[in-house]
Nucleic acid binder design. Structure first.
Lengths: 154, 154
DNA sequence: TGGTTGTTTTGAATTCTTAAAGAAAGGTGA
DNA sequence: TCACCTTTCTTTAAGAATTCAAAACAACCA
């Protein structure tokens, strides 16, 4: 992978992907830029699908490269990884805002949900068992409109 | 597996495991009773560990039998299955009360947390995207006292 | 532009979980 | 209690998602 993408720069407001990578101390590679682009276009995407998408642009890319990149970017805080029960890990670019998710039990569709109660909802549980809590992850389960309609029409 | 455990009966209040199985329309087998016992003694236990525990009592038991039983009991509502990110599925006997979980990022320890806000907390998200929501699953992430101490002592 | 270090490829293994088919045990009615 | 039908269990396999290790390669700084 050779980094030959056009150079974009920003004046601070919205850092470009390149800048975000550099700020995170990661080298700027085409693979990483491509993965960032893919996940930006299609939120809640599994590694598998990222891999296939990346391959359209960068045919030689290996599955492991994609797993590495997703792991690196997640660790760097550029991606967020969620793992709804029964689903492979999903990645999204919306990070740092503690938003939640709504998952369809039938088709697995995922939607973002803003925090219900202010900025850090539910972060104060009734008991803490002495834990140093740093995140409250909320997953809403139900049926999406399509599956809901399909079910009630049976 | 032959069901030869002593027969216990209850007068409605707290149904015995046998009664719970029967009520669920499941046959009473030693395997199922053993699994229920194991999970009752050790909440948040993975299939793997259930298997090893069951084998101490019933040496011939197969891994798949345990997976089958765990699946059947979960489907019947006698067990609850949770899948914290990065962990294999965990099972617990505490069902039907919509309680939540506190997971240690370091060692994976899991603690139960009662609902923070009344009976069905967080069940009303800020947006529903047309979904028919039936459950709000909350997972608190942090460090358990032990791991917390180990980290700050580094 | 060279060297160093970080990334990616290559090739393979692991972990968790489900599938299928036959054997065995549970439950029911006579 | 016996025969029969059904559910459950064992055995054997397979599959998906993810990770590991080492060598080849590319990005970046001086």
């Amino acid at each position: 992978m050779t980094a030959t993408a056009p150079i974009a720069s920003s004046s601070g407001e919205h850092p470009t992907p390149r800048e975000q990578l550099r700020t995170a101390g990661l080298r700027v590679t085409t693979g990483r830029l491509t993965v960032l682009g893919v996940v930006a276009r299609q939120p809640h995407i599994p590694a598998d699908t990222v891999f296939r998408s990346v391959r359209e642009t960068l045919p030689g890319t290996s599955v492991q490269a994609v797993y590495n990149v997703l792991g690196d970017l997640t660790r760097a805080g550029l991606l967020r990884r969620i793992e709804p029960a029964g689903s492979p890990a999903l990645y999204e670019r919306r990070v740092g805002d503690n938003h939640h998710h709504l998952v369809c039990r039938s088709c697995g569709a995922v939607e973002d949900i803003d925090c219900a109660v202010g900025e850090t909802p539910c972060l104060v549980p009734s008991q803490s068992h002495g834990f140093a809590i740093d995140e409250a992850e909320v997953t809403f389960w139900g049926l999406c409109p399509t599956c809901s309609a399909a079910t009630s029409t049976d």
